[in-house]
Design a protein around this nucleic acid. Structure first.
Length: 772
RNA sequence: GGGCGGGUAGCUCAGUCGGUUAGAGCACAUCCCUUACAAGGAUGGGGUCGCAGGUUCGAGUCCUGUUCCGCCCACCA
C-alpha cells in the first residue's frame, strides 16, 4: 500500500526541478510526430511557435516571464489536444546591446575595440557569449517552458547566417536592396546608423533663436529667421518662404548671406512653410534635418554635411571646426550677437530625437548606407492581413499595423558595428560591387570581369539585428534548405509577443516571410501587454520598482508567478503586477495542493467497487464541471486565456473545495455505493480540474496528478504523464444540468441564511442545531 | 495634427451574446487553530460602473457628445 500522506504545504522547490527533468528526459517537449523520424505521419496537424528570441546575454525579466508563460500555455494546451506541437527556442545576438556590453568590459581593462581590432573583438565577443549565453536558457527552463531544446537556435549560428546571406542576396538580385548616401539617423556615441524605429522623440525645454539673414547686395535689409539649432546655420543652403507670403515674396530668387561664413544662398519658395510659425521664413539645412532634406530634393539644392561621425563640426564649419555641436551652438550665437545679427530668444519646447538605446541625442546625417526598398514587401504584408491569412489579436492592432505599413519608409539595414552579420558584398579596387553568398562566389564573379588577380574587400558594415530576426520563423526550421522541418512545421501557427515590437519584428517577419517563402510565417499574431508596477508605472531600475521574476519564483514558486501573469492580463492591455498578487496565487496553488491531498488520501481509503448512485451534490459538481469545460474551451478559442484561468480558479476554490469536498466528507462517511460514487466523482473532478489547470500551473498539477493516478482504483487508462494527457472534451449540455444547479443553489442559499443567522445571533459552533 | 486604450469597491483589475441581486484578489469588521488547507474556514460592510444625452421591455455592455489619464504614430523650423 503506497503512502499517500502528502506534505501539508506544497514544496515547489524540490518539485519543480524534478518534474522538469522528468518531462525533458521523457522527450515530451519534442513533437510527437517528427518528419525526421521513421513512422512520420504528415496528416497530423501541427501547432508551432517560434520563441521571440531573447538577447543572448540577457537576464530574465518579467517581459520574458510573460511571453514564456503565455506561449507555454498555448503549447501545452495544443499538445494535450493531440497536435504535433513544436516550440522552437533560441536567442538573438542583439548587435548593439551585446557589443556595448563587451565594449564596457574592455573599457574596464583599459582598452577598446578600436585598439584590439575587429578580429580580436569578435573573438572576445564570442567568448563573452559562451560565458553568459546559456544563462537565459536556464532561466527560461525554470519557468516551465516546454520547448524542444534539441532545436535551439542562435541568430549567428552557421545555419541562420546562411539564411541571412541568402535573404540579402535574393533581395539584392531582385533590386530591392540598394546602397547610397541618404539622410539617416546617426548615433554619434555608437558611431553607427540606426533605423527610424530606433529613435524616440522626447519633449524638452529649449530655446527658439531669432536672427537676421542679410539680403545680399543690401546694407540693412534682412529676412528674419527662427531656429532651434543655430549651429546648423553652418550647413544652410537656402532660406525658404511661403510662395504667397507678401512679406517675403520680393526676395524669392534673390541671395542671402549665411551668418559668420558669408556664403551666399538662394531664397526659395515652398508651400511647406507655415506662415504663422516663427517668422514665416525657414532656413534650410539639408544635411541635418529630414524636412529640409526633402525640400532640398524638390528644389535640387546641394547637400552639405557639417559634422563628422562624432557630431563635431567638420571643415565646412569654418572657424568652428572641431567643436562639439552643442558647444558650437553657444559659440556661434555669441558671435552672431557680436555681429548684430541676433533678434531675440524665446523659450520653446523642442522635440529631441534620442537613441532608444542609451538616450543620446541622434543627429540626422548624410551617410552612405544599405537600404531595403520596402514598398513591395509592405504591400504584400498588408494584403496578407487584409485577406485574413493572418489574424491579429486583439483586432484593434490591425489598424495600427495598416497605418504603419501604409506610410512606411525604406529600411536602413546597415550598422557600423562589428557584432553581427556582415553585409555579403565585396568590392573590387574600382568599387565595383559583388553581392554573393560568400567570398569565393564573389571572387568567381569578379574574375570574369577583372581577371584572376583581382583582390576583393568585403563591406565593413553589419546588418541590423532585426534583419536576421525577420527571418526567424523559417530560418530556425532550416530555410533556405528544403528541410523536413520546414516542410512540415512551416508556416507556424502563432506569433506571440508584446505589442511594442509589432513594427520592429512582427511586420518585418511578415514581409520577409512572404517574400522568401511565399507563405505567411504564422497564422495568428497574439499581442500581450506590457507589465507595469502596482500603480501602473513602468518598471525601471531608477524608480526601484522592478520585480525580479527569479526572486519571485524562489519565494513563491513558478506556478504562482505563471498563474498571476496569465490570469492578470487581457490581450493587448498592460497589466500591473505586485508581489501581493503573486502571493494570492501562491495561496491558490496551496489550495489546489491541499484539496488534492485530501482527495488522494480519501479515495485510497474509499470502497474501490460499487454502483454509481449520484446524490444532488454529485450531479451538481458534475454539471458545474461540464459547464466549466465548455466555457474554458470557448474562451481558449477566443484567446481569452486570462478569463479561462479565472473561471477555473473560481470553480476549483468555490465550487469544488468549499462545497463539494465538504459534502463529500459526509457522503464518504455513509459508506457503500454512496462512498464509492463520491470517490469516483472526486477522482473525475480532480482529474479534469488538473488537466484544465495544467497549461497555467504545470508543475503542481503534474505532481498531484501523479499521486492521483496511483491512488485511484485500477481500471482506468491514465497515460504516462499529465503533460501528454488528453485535454478534457467539452460535452453538449444535458437537460438535467440546469435543474440540478438550481436545486443545489437553493440548498446553498438555505445554508447561507442559517450561517448568517448564527453569526448575527452569535451562536457558538455546536451550540444549537436548527430544525429544517 | 491623427489613431488607440483606459476611467467599475479603499487599492489592482475582470466582466468579448444587451438579461436574475455588477464580480475577484488584496485591504477592512466579527467569529472560528472542526483530522485537506490559518498561505485556511464562515459571515459581513463597501459601487448612482468618469459625465451628459440617446436606442431598448431592459445598458457597465450598443450609439452620439464630453472630460480626465496613458500610449502609439506624424515633417511645424
Amino acid at each position: 500500500m503506497p503512502d499517500f500522506t502528502l506534505p501539508k504545504t506544497y514544496d515547489f522547490k524540490s518539485t519543480e526541478s524534478r518534474i522538469y527533468e522528468m518531462w525533458e528526459k521523457s522527450g515530451y517537449f519534442k513533437p510527437k510526430n517528427d518528419p525526421n523520424q521513421p513512422g512520420f505521419d504528415p496528416s497530423i496537424k501541427t501547432f508551432v511557435i517560434s520563441i521571440p528570441p531573447p538577447n543572448v546575454t540577457g537576464e530574465l525579466h518579467l517581459g520574458h516571464a510573460m511571453f514564456v508563460s503565455m506561449e507555454d500555455l498555448m503549447i501545452r494546451y495544443h499538445r494535450m489536444k493531440g497536435y504535433a506541437t513544436l516550440w522552437v527556442p533560441g536567442s538573438d545576438h542583439a548587435g548593439i546591446a551585446t557589443q556595448l556590453q563587451v565594449e564596457k568590459a574592455l573599457a574596464k581593462e583599459g582598452t577598446s575595440r578600436e585598439k584590439i581590432g575587429r578580429e580580436e573583438f569578435l573573438k572576445r565577443t564570442w567568448q563573452w557569449n559562451e560565458k553568459y549565453g546559456g544563462i537565459i536558457y536556464q532561466q527560461i527552463r525554470r519557468l516551465g517552458a516546454s520547448c524542444d531544446w534539441e532545436r535551439v537556435r542562435f541568430t549567428l549560428d552557421e545555419g541562420l547566417s546562411k539564411s541571412v546571406r541568402e535573404g540579402f542576396v535574393r533581395l539584392y538580385k531582385k533590386g530591392l536592396i540598394y546602397r547610397g548616401p541618404r539622410l539617416i539617423n546617426w548615433s554619434p556615441g555608437l558611431k553607427t546608423a540606426v533605423s527610424d524605429l530606433e529613435v524616440e522623440y522626447s519633449q524638452e525645454p529649449g530655446t527658439l533663436y531669432y536672427f537676421k539673414y542679410m539680403v545680399a547686395g543690401s546694407q540693412d535689409e534682412f529676412i528674419p529667421v527662427a531656429t532651434t539649432r543655430p549651429e546648423t546655420i553652418l550647413g544652410d543652403t537656402a532660406v525658404c518662404v511661403h510662395p504667397e507670403d507678401d512679406r517675403y515674396r520680393k526676395y524669392i530668387g534673390q541671395k542671402v548671406i549665411v551668418p559668420i561664413l558669408g556664403r551666399e544662398v538662394p531664397v526659395i519658395a515652398d508651400a511647406y512653410v507655415e506662415r504663422e510659425f516663427g517668422t514665416g521664413a525657414l532656413k534650410i539645412t539639408p544635411g541635418h534635418d529630414q524636412n529640409d532634406y526633402e525640400i532640398s530634393q524638390r528644389h535640387k539644392l546641394p547637400m552639405l554635411s557639417i559634422m563628422d561621425e562624432s557630431a563635431r563640426i567638420n571643415e565646412h564649419g569654418g572657424p568652428y571646426q572641431g567643436l562639439d555641436r552643442f558647444d558650437c551652438r553657444k559659440k556661434i550665437w555669441e558671435d552672431m550677437r557680436s555681429a548684430g545679427l541676433v533678434l531675440k530668444e524665446e523659450a520653446y519646447t523642442l522635440t529631441v530625437p534620442r537613441s532608444q538605446r542609451g538616450g543620446e541625442i541622434i543627429e540626422p546625417m548624410i551617410s552612405t548606407q544599405w537600404f531595403v526598398h520596402i514598398q513591395p514587401l509592405a504591400d504584400a504584408a498588408l494584403e496578407a492581413v487584409r485577406d485574413g491569412r493572418i489574424t491579429i489579436v486583439p483586432e484593434r492592432f490591425t489598424k495600427v499595423y495598416y497605418n504603419w505599413l501604409e506610410n512606411i519608409k525604406d529600411w536602413c539595414i546597415s550598422r557600423q558595428l562589428w557584432w553581427g552579420h556582415r553585409v555579403p558584398v565585396w568590392y573590387a579596387p574600382d568599387g565595383t560591387m559583388f553581392c554573393a553568398h560568400n567570398e569565393e562566389e564573389a571572387t568567381q564573379q569578379a574574375r570574369q570581369q577583372f581577371g584572376t588577380d583581382v583582390h576583393l574587400e568585403q563591406d565593413e558594415d553589419v546588418l541590423d539585428t532585426w534583419f536576421s530576426s525577420g527571418l526567424w520563423p523559417f530560418s530556425t526550421l532550416g530555410w533556405p534548405d528544403n528541410t523536413p522541418d520546414l516542410g512540415y512545421f512551416y508556416p507556424t501557427a502563432m506569433m506571440e509577443t508584446g505589442y511594442d515590437i509589432l513594427f520592429f519584428w512582427v511586420a518585418r517577419m511578415i514581409m520577409m516571410g512572404l517574400e522568401f517563402t511565399g507563405e505567411v510565417p504564422f497564422q495568428t499574431v497574439y499581442l500581450h501587454g506590457l507589465i507595469r508596477d502596482e500603480h501602473g508605472r513602468k518598471m525601471s531600475k531608477s524608480y526601484g520598482n522592478v520585480i525580479d521574476p527569479l526572486i519571485v519564483m524562489d519565494e513563491m514558486g513558478t506556478d504562482a508567478l505563471r498563474f498571476t501573469l496569465l490570469v492578470g492580463s487581457t490581450p493587448g492591455n498592460d497589466m500591473s503586477l505586485s508581489v501581493k498578487k503573486v502571493e494570492s496565487n501562491r495561496n491558490f496553488a496551496n489550495k489546489v495542493w491541499n484539496a488534492g491531498r485530501y482527495v488522494i488520501n480519501a479515495i485510497s481509503q474509499a470502497p474501490a467497487q460499487g454502483n454509481i448512485d449520484w446524490s444532488l451534490a454529485d450531479s451538481w459538481i458534475w454539471a458545474r464541471l461540464q459547464t466549466l469545460v465548455r466555457d474554458v474551451e470557448r474562451l481558449f478559442q477566443n484567446y481569452q486565456y486570462g478569463e479561462a484561468g479565472r473561471q477555473i480558479y473560481e470553480f476549483f476554490w468555490n465550487d469544488f473545495a468549499d462545497w463539494y469536498v465538504e459534502l463529500a466528507k459526509l457522503q464518504l462517511a455513509e459508506g457503500g455505493d454512496r462512498a464509492y460514487t463520491t470517490a469516483d466523482t472526486l477522482i473525475r473532478v480532480l482529474d479534469t480540474s488538473l488537466r484544465l489547470l495544467h497549461p497555467f500551473t504545470p508543475y503542481i498539477t503534474e505532481e498531484l496528478w501523479g499521486y492521483l493516478k496511483e491512488a485511484a482504483p485500477q481500471g482506468k487508462e491514465w497515460g504516462p504523464a499529465l503533460i501528454v494527457a488528453d485535454w478534457p472534451m467539452p460535452l453538449p449540455e444535458e437537460d438535467w444540468e440546469t435543474q440540478k444547479v438550481a436545486d443545489f443553489s437553493l440548498m446553498q442559499e438555505v445554508v447561507r441564511v442559517i450561517r448568517n443567522l448564527r453569526a448575527e445571533k452569535q451562536v457558538k459552533p455546536g451550540q444549537r442545531t436548527p430544525a429544517i
